[in-house]
């Protein structure tokens, strides 16, 4: 009897030992995390956090071709699936740098000067801001009916007013849009580049006022998604912030330029290390050669 109880007590002790161990695990994890954070104290926002777009983005492809010279991005690049997500992450992360369309620059992020030229509409129009490109809409064959009217509307003075209002660069020498005598109905599906999305969304709202019987559906997804949707026939118009790639040619897609855009390089407003970069510095940052903001402010 006594023996049994003793064995039980021993087991009991072992059990408790387990408990203590688990308690200790908690304490250890806590302290190691804490000490880890003590070690890193004072580095707030010093390490560069690279933010970029996912692999089907037109903005990424343009950036990759134009800025990176088709060299591979650093492996620490964090992918976001839209311009808005890049902007939002940069605004929340002190050490972050990202690239977005001009239309996405607002007070929550700081746009850097590139080669000492401020990123704005005037400088893109003047041709001095170095990172800019055309924005496109693609249709399968020549545009007809509602598709044609919608593209004409965006290219008109009224449409280009929306382009300006959204912070992009308008086309020059446009004429007024004329609705006289036309009626349109049915549905029009537009999908693709998130860079072009804000323009199309506003334009679609205005367009629906002109043609109340028409339903216009606008979705994002990225340039690649838009182009493949229009070539498969699941969308009427594919929005894109890049031209066709070799694998996308020969599918009967017709290109319509609808605006121009500069790509802004944005950092967190708390970033006091830099106000501008050269294209070479930008490339080194995205290659992962420069990983600390301090190295740039020297």
């Amino acid at each position: 009897m006594i023996l049994v109880i003793q064995i039980n007590q021993q087991k009991e002790k072992r059990q408790l030992g387990m408990l203590v161990i688990s308690l200790a695990v908690i304490i250890i994890l806590g302290t190691s995390l804490f000490s880890g954070c003590v070690q890193q104290q004072g580095q707030q926002g010093e390490s560069i956090v690279l933010i970029g777009r996912d692999s089907t983005s037109g903005t990424r492809e343009f950036f990759w071709t134009f800025v990176m010279g088709k060299a591979n991005f650093s492996a620490s690049l964090l992918e976001k699936n839209s311009n808005g997500a890049v902007q939002q992450t940069v605004s929340q992360t002190p050490g972050a740098i990202g690239y977005v369309g001009l239309g996405y620059v607002d007070s929550t992020v700081k746009a850097l000067k590139i080669n000492n030229i401020t990123a704005n509409v005037q400088n893109v129009l003047a041709g001095t801001y170095p990172i800019s490109r055309d924005l496109y809409m693609f249709t399968k064959g020549n545009a007809t009916g509602a598709t044609k009217e919608f593209i004409l509307y965006i290219q008109s003075t009224e449409g280009q007013a929306i382009v300006t209002q959204e912070g992009y660069v308008p086309l020059q020498n446009t004429s007024h849009y004329n609705t006289s005598g036309k009626t349109l109905s049915g549905t029009l599906t537009v999908s693709g580049s998130t860079t072009v999305l804000p323009i199309t969304d506003k334009a679609a709202t205005a367009f629906k006022v002109l043609y109340p019987d028409l339903t216009v559906t606008v979705t994002g997804g990225g340039s690649g998604a838009g182009i493949s949707a229009v070539s498969q026939g699941t969308a009427d118009i594919g929005m894109s912030s890049r031209d066709l790639q070799s694998s996308e040619q020969g599918k009967g897609l017709v290109k319509h330029v609808i605006a121009k855009d500069g790509i802004a390089i944005i950092v967190n407003p708390q970033n006091t290390y830099v106000t501008g970069l050269t294209l070479a510095q930008l490339k080194s940052i995205y290659l992962g050669e420069i990983t600390n903001w301090k190295d740039l402010s020297k």
Binding site: K13, L16, G17, L19, V20, I21, L23, A24, I27, I28, L29, T31, S32, L33, S35, G36
Partner: peptide, 27 residues
Amino acid sequence: IILLMAVGIFPTVGILALIAVIYYAMK
């Protein structure tokens, strides 16, 4: 291993000793 990497060798030994003390105290 985590401890060694996070805080270095001396704090690790200290923490392990602390655990041992608690363990025997609990007994």
